[in-house]
Amino acid sequence: MNLIVCLKVTPKIEQIKFDEQKKTIVREGVENEINEADKNALEAALKLKDAAGGKVVVLSMGPPSFEPFLKLAIAMGADDAVLLSDRVFGGADTYATSRVLAAGVEKLKPYDMVLCGEASSDGSTEQVPPSIAGWLGIPHVSYVSEISVVGDRVRARREVTDGHEVVEVRPPVLASVQLGCNSPRFPDFRRKRWAEKEFKLRVMSNQDLGFAPADVGLEGSRTEVTGLSRMRSPERKREFIKGTEEEVAKRLAQIVRA
């Protein structure tokens, strides 16, 4: 099977600060990481490859600084990595992002399956995977927790409100994988050294994809942010209940019964 894994490099959320005066997000000094759910997507793809053979290619859109993270994916077991990188791709919403990623997938034809993490930790919109499938015109199975190949079909368990279902579909298909549905393998030490020294990342610019600049990035986006604010929380009493465990329990019981 030819498997493509879409992978995003995201800032570590807990390090993000908000500048109240300027109403902007402070990214300086914030470390990056491979988006956690995308690691689960990569692990799912590597497992499928282990079981059925084939090739795993990692695909990402972003600046050249993503390179070490794509090499990390290679060290984990991916066969190849492609970075879609161009200034005109910047500032994209989910519409323009999914458009560029879908064009990258088209460049990697033929493929059987595209795997994505269900959401990015920074944007958390969960919209890029179904939107990529929309551009590609292929079926999309979301919130997948288990995936396997049965005959000529892909069989996936997906989580829905109050339960789960099992779906079967003929490839090509896009699956978005649930955060935490598997344990991503550690990078192989030797492979990591090889990836760092010898692996040549394929970089595609907009020249390779051939979009009009107005169709991608900020300009090609359908939505815009008009302002940022910190999430307002209501004022709370913040009364600390002190005393022995019995006293605390008695007081809590009064509050619960009220």
């Binding site: 958390s124 919109t125 969960e126 890029v128 179904p130 499938a133 929309g134 997906r158 409100t161 939505t223």
Partner: peptide, 23 residues
């Protein structure tokens, strides 16, 4: 923004050429 609603919205936005604000 249930699981199914989210999956539908992402695909539908592309089909309609529409902007989508999530969650």
């Amino acid at each position: 923004a249930t699981h199914n609603g989210t999956a539908l919205a992402g695909m539908l936005a592309i089909r309609l050429g529409a902007g989508l604000m999530a969650h």
